[in-house]
Nucleic acid binder design. Sequence first.
DNA 1: GTGGTCTAGACCACG
DNA 2: GTGGTCTAGACCACT
Lengths: 132, 132, 132, 132
Amino acid sequence: MQILLDFDSEIPIYLQLKHQIIAGIAKGVLQPKEPLPSVRTMAKDIGINQHTVNKTYQMLKQEGYIQIHRQKGVVIHPEGVDKADVAYYHALEESLHPMIADAICRQVTKEDFQAIIAKLYQIYEYKGDDKK
Amino acid sequence: MQILLDFDSEIPIYLQLKHQIIAGIAKGVLQPKEPLPSVRTMAKDIGINQHTVNKTYQMLKQEGYIQIHRQKGVVIHPEGVDKADVAYYHALEESLHPMIADAICRQVTKEDFQAIIAKLYQIYEYKGDDKK
Amino acid sequence: MQILLDFDSEIPIYLQLKHQIIAGIAKGVLQPKEPLPSVRTMAKDIGINQHTVNKTYQMLKQEGYIQIHRQKGVVIHPEGVDKADVAYYHALEESLHPMIADAICRQVTKEDFQAIIAKLYQIYEYKGDDKK
Amino acid sequence: MQILLDFDSEIPIYLQLKHQIIAGIAKGVLQPKEPLPSVRTMAKDIGINQHTVNKTYQMLKQEGYIQIHRQKGVVIHPEGVDKADVAYYHALEESLHPMIADAICRQVTKEDFQAIIAKLYQIYEYKGDDKK
DNA sequence: GTGGTCTAGACCACG
DNA sequence: GTGGTCTAGACCACT
C-alpha cells in the first residue's frame, strides 16, 4: 500500500500515517491477517524516523487495528477492529459538533453536509474490489 | 452568552472558546452586530489568559466571524460570515475523511453517520428562537 | 515523593517509575489533585531521559491515574482511578497464575502466600498517615 | 502433556512454555523422573524454534525443575524442586508489590485479592489425581 | 516553562 | 531481522 505524507501539514506525521493505514483497512486494500511493513522498513520507505512509525503502530495496536508480534512483525488484526460502542459514538459527536456549527454559519445545509458524508462513504464502499 | 471550558480537555482552550462562540452564532444566540466582551473582560470572566482570548479573537476575525475595532471593541460580523466556498468544502472533506474511514472499520453505516449529523443539526436549527 | 530506580534491574525504567508513582498513590503519599513534577524536572531529578518519563506519564494517563494538562503540568487524577472491572480481575489472575504454580512447586502453601499478600497490604493500609 | 501457546500474547514464547511445564509439575501431571520430550521433538510438536525450547529448558534446569542428561534426555527433577528460600520469598514479594499497589488504587480489598489466590490454588490442589 | 512531536543513533530480548 | 527500551538534542504549540 502506498503512503503519502504531507510534511508541511499541521497534522502530525504519526497521525497522517495512522489515518492512511485505517483508510487502507476501510477500503479493504489491507485485509485482516495481512502483514504490514516492519517499523524499520516503513520508516525507510516513507522517509521518516522509526520512532514515529512505532508511535503510529502502538496507537493502532492499542485501538485494535493491528497486532504486533515480537519477531514476526506487524499484521492487520485477524478479526477486525471492535464495533463502535457508546463511547465511540459520543466521541464522534464531540468531534463533529464544532464542524457542524461552523458549517451552519457558512450556510451549509444538513443535506449538503450529508451529501459530503455520502460521497466519502462511496470511496470506501466497494471493499476488496480494488485490492491493487 | 455563557462560556463553558473544560480545562482537562485535550482541546486547547483557545479552540474551545472559538468553538463556543461559533456555536453561539450558529444557534443565533449571538446575532450580527452584537458586541462581544473585550479581550481583557472575556479573559477575566472565564478565568484564562488574555493572550488566549486574543488568539481566539484573531482567528475569528481572520475567518470573518467578527470585526475588531480599535475603539468600539469586538462585534459579530454585521453581514455574517462568508458562505462556504470550494476551499471550505475541500477542507471539510479532509477533516471528515479520517473520521469516516475509522467509522467504517467499526461498522458504522452511512445511515448511522448521517443520523448523527441530523441530530447535531437539530441542535442549531431553530435560529434565534432561544436568544440567550 | 522520593523515587528510587535500579538501573541494573530487568524491569524497564519507565515501569519502575510507574510502579513507584502508583505505590505513592496507593499509600496516599500522592493525593488526588496533587501535582507531579514536570517531565523535565522529574527526568533531571532522577537522572533519566525526558522521553522515558514521558512514556511513564502517558501510560499513567491512559490508565486513569493522572491528568496531563497542556501547560499546567501533571496532576494525580482528582477523582481517583477507576474501580477494578471484570477485565482487570481477569488480567490479574493471568499474572498470578504462573507465580502460584511456581510457588506450589516450592511448597509455598496457600496460607503462606496469603500471608505475603496480607503483609504487603499492610504497607499501604494506613492511607494518608505518612503524608511525609 | 499438552502445551498451549498463544502466539499473539505479549508474553514471550519461551516463558509461556516454561509456565506451562511448571503448571504441569504443580498439578502433578508431570511427576518426578518423568521424561520430557527432547528439545527438537518438543520444538517440532508445538511448532516453535529449537532455540526457544532450549532457552526454556536451560531456565528450568537452572531453577532446579528438570535435569538434562546428554544421552538419557530430559527428565523432571527426581527429588522435586528446592523448597522456597528467603531469596525466593523476597523475589516473590518484589513481583507482587506493584500488583498490589495497583489493586489497592482500584479498590480491590485484601480479602478480594486473597480470594483470587485461593481460587488459583484450588486449580492445583489435587496433586496427582488427574495424572494426564 | 509546559507537554507534543520528530530525528538520530544505540543496545537488548526474542526467535 | 524484529520490536522494545533508552539517550540526546531539537523545534513547536500553548498559556
